[in-house]
Design a protein around this nucleic acid. Sequence first.
DNA 1: ATTGGTGCAAATCCTTTGCAATAGC
DNA 2: GCTATTGCAAAGGATTTGCACCAAT
Lengths: 146, 146
Amino acid sequence: MAMAVHNTDDLIALLRSRGQRVTSQRLVILRELRRRRRHATAEEIYRAVHQDLPGTSTPTIYATLELLVELGLVRKLDVGIGASMYDARMEPHQHAVCRRCGRIEDLNLELDPRALLSAAGAADRFEPRATELVISGLCAQCAATA
Amino acid sequence: MAMAVHNTDDLIALLRSRGQRVTSQRLVILRELRRRRRHATAEEIYRAVHQDLPGTSTPTIYATLELLVELGLVRKLDVGIGASMYDARMEPHQHAVCRRCGRIEDLNLELDPRALLSAAGAADRFEPRATELVISGLCAQCAATA
DNA sequence: ATTGGTGCAAATCCTTTGCAATAGC
DNA sequence: GCTATTGCAAAGGATTTGCACCAAT
């Protein structure tokens, strides 16, 4: 059966292949992101990482998150709250955000950016790399309350 | 033929119907947004409005933009640069952003949020209000250069 | 031994708040 | 005249920068 251990061999291999250093901060931050089921803000990661690695600084958190995104191990997303969120779930999916309670729900939805660009008549004007969809509205709970 | 004059009768009517005041700042800010073809940041609007109405403050810009969004006259969007953008083009469309040069291109694409939620099996868990899609990548020019 | 990464402090950028003054109704 | 809006100054939150130190190679 699948283990709950979130290993970081892929990160280590990627760093080595690029001649970059394998540091405990990098491993701990990725492990923390993988442990969570939910997306996290930089600040949440910062607080969590402090348990394992006190003294870790915000600049390191931000630099590492950016690096993980660049390496394709983490997705950065902006759902309209002030802070960016980071998500280690890499299967294709999109997001729904509740305007009232802030809940973010994953949508199992695989979008084809090239098909979308074609539909828009812009297939030849753009080389897609990432597709981010955010549906905002009310979650069932908040809709019931309102 | 269609006129290039961007009138603000709809805003005036909406404000009156809600018992809110018709101020020159509100009219000028909406007119400025409608005059542009491109989306603008709060700061761009701030600078432009200063020509017509020197002394207009950033808090007023932000409060007014938020009001216009609430009234359904303007769309707010986050394409991943630090600042939010505001767009007075209200026909359904989505956006593509170039990672290199920052260009934002409109995509003539009408997305049905309910259909998307259904496809994701979340139709009963969410009451959609807005749908924002951002495809990021490289515009044709930047792709050619790279 | 090198030099890429880190921590600290401070800076920057975008946006919001508090409150007195002003202008719509 | 009443009170919503405004302007000003200042605060706030997220993220980045500069630079000396540390630790992975």
